[in-house]
Design a protein around this nucleic acid. Structure first.
Lengths: 208, 208, 208, 208
DNA sequence: TGTTAAACGAGACGGTACGTCACGTCTTCGC
DNA sequence: GCGAAGACGTGACGTACCGTCTCGTTTAACA
């Protein structure tokens, strides 16, 4: 998670249990207190761990919360629901369900806000959170192409741009609906959204 | 801005110049320091104002930044560009230009993050920022209906839902593109986005 | 005490009561905890004062304790007891009484220890504590010369050296007896000490 | 402190070397950092020893420093210089030379300070440091009595009191001169001091 | 034109959390 | 089976901002 290279052989090894306890405590604190009132001292106490142990593993509040929130997105999956529309609706609903949880709501936007000034943090978010979501988009597209619902992309670069666009549209719409408009991304909304998106992607462009 | 009712007659009136100076100083500090390193003491110093004066007008960092950022959205306009597509492209580009400015990037997501736990703040954001944007969507739709590009909406509630959906899709996509993906919402991207959105909306059958 | 020049006119003035409360709390903590277990946070709490207030006035534990202990020496006086021997015995007993108090014992040697590496601290100790004691030696000598018990000193430099010597002998003996040997400098000991000292001084021929 | 020669004794041949290395490292750290900045982790590193090893042998910083400083006083000797005055001058100069060394200055007063609250520490200091010095006083008195410079003491208790007094006067004066007044106990000062002391002890008491 | 009451700058105040440091204890593994 | 390496819980450190509170001083509307 945070230690890329073990590097050392000697000495007492770091407690793996501590990592899990800290991340769980972080999520719990996010639920109860929200981002701005969450303190690392409190997280350490909840985890039954010393503050120093926490600082040995994470550089600060932002990094810690990225890792704690990232674990929430582990549950995102893309079971085959039979059609592209159903697949999209399914994954959007899953995504909305995660964003409906207070531990995600409180922390996610805060770390994104900070990432506009901290490239390392942005990279960490990309690797831990965004890529997890992006993978589903790629998977869904491949599956739809297998089914023949989408034509195979001849142009590699154009394909990447399209995937980016779709990803920003999907994730952006759900995030905005949930966190800015403050309304639930429920089944009805998801169905409307999916219809517009899919139609926009598959209908023949009536360009002049 | 923040004082609904002056209520008093006597005494020295509040300096209007101080308000402007404080908001300008806030934006300057956002540019230089970002949200997390911005302090109210520093803002007061930059504005040539005592901390007390600042606290007399705003309850805290979040409220202050909402107002400071909100002013950036005053410049959003919807000149008639001749077609719905052109109108959308125009306003999305304007929106993207604002989000590209560091004083907006740094602060916007932070207050949105906090608003997930603070209803008064959410309401303030809605009134100061979101409504300014939503108005353009309504205006654009009305203009498109005048032009005959869109059919008049018979169902009031359905119309409101559609406007909400469009708004979340537009704002969400631009925000996600700019702040999460970290890529510019340039003309090419905006054209692609607009094509998909418009196609999805206009080709949409009134499916049950 | 610590602020030589008030320097400013504007702003909220510092609380004089806080100073007194902090120094009293420091002495109380010295009594209960001793030097090494005394913490500034605890002192602040005892004084009913924020830690920051304490740090605004003193640079650290050493400086604070110097001032707190120095006040103990304010009570040193030299009433005329009729003879040089009686004067010396009186002041040595006073000095011993102060060193017998736990708030002095705990702190005094600690700051002296630190002063061997910190010239500013040494100077502060000299000004706050040592000079208070030295003044008594000078006063006692002057009074003895008035009485005719001691001859007037013709050589200025020699006189200074003698005063320094006497001071180191008096203060050193009492401190060593009390803090190193750990035995009380009671009346009997003081009488013996005074006899030796006085005999050594008055019988001393002006040997080259 | 690795022993190059294996010396395949399956006992602990390193133990003695480690002790010496740790004490030497302690003194070196005292010189470079002084008491308050000396840390046991640093001492262990300097000695090429694990912190664990250090804690197995000493209970803490105070105990360690007592032992490290005590070794400095091993060099105190009392060669026969022919007269009581010369003997005193000699030993006082030796004592002053030790107190002039930074490893003694920094540590000695600190442990004395702590010993005012810690009886075990006081006892350790007495046994390791004070008795070493006291022995010289006893030795000097015995030698002076052999020479006939001092009369034999008939009263045992009175004799002990006198020795204590002399010891406190000698050690106290040198310590105070060196560490509090911050001036060197050089030959001139020592000669003056010895003259006063000796005259005070040997002259006939002119008591009324 | 003088009163007067609020707003102003300055900055000290009681707090809270920060991130660091050293302590003294405890694992783990290598020699 | 020591002993180095180092992670651990603990707790104090000194700092930075917070938001509040005096102060003494403008300053503009009212009298």
């Amino acid at each position: 998670m945070q230690s890329r290279t073990p590097a050392t052989r000697t000495g007492r090894p770091r407690s793996a249990a501590a990592d899990a306890a800290i991340l769980a405590a972080t999520r719990q604190a996010l639920v109860e207190l929200g981002w701005s009132r969450l303190t690392l001292g409190d997280v350490a106490t909840r985890a039954g761990v010393a503050k120093t142990t926490l600082y040995r593993r994470w550089a600060g509040k932002h990094e810690l919360v990225v890792d704690a929130v990232a674990e929430l997105f582990d549950e995102l999956e893309l079971p085959d629901r039979g059609s592209l529309a159903a697949d999209i609706e399914g994954v959007v609903l899953q995504f909305a369900a995660i964003l409906a949880r207070p531990e995600a709501r409180s922390g996610l936007m805060a770390v994104v806000a900070e990432s506009t000034r901290d490239d390392a943090l942005r990279e960490r978010i990309r690797a831990s959170i965004v890529d997890r979501q992006m993978r589903l988009v790629l998977e869904g597209r491949a599956r739809a192409q297998c089914r023949g619902e989408l034509p195979p992309e001849p142009d590699q670069a154009e394909a990447a741009r399209t995937v980016d666009l779709i990803f920003d549209m999907v994730a952006g719409a759900v995030v905005h609906r949930t966190l800015v408009s403050g309304k639930p991304a429920d089944e009805e909304w998801v169905r409307s959204f999916t219809r517009v998106l899919l139609l926009g992607l598959t209908a023949a462009p009536a360009e002049p």
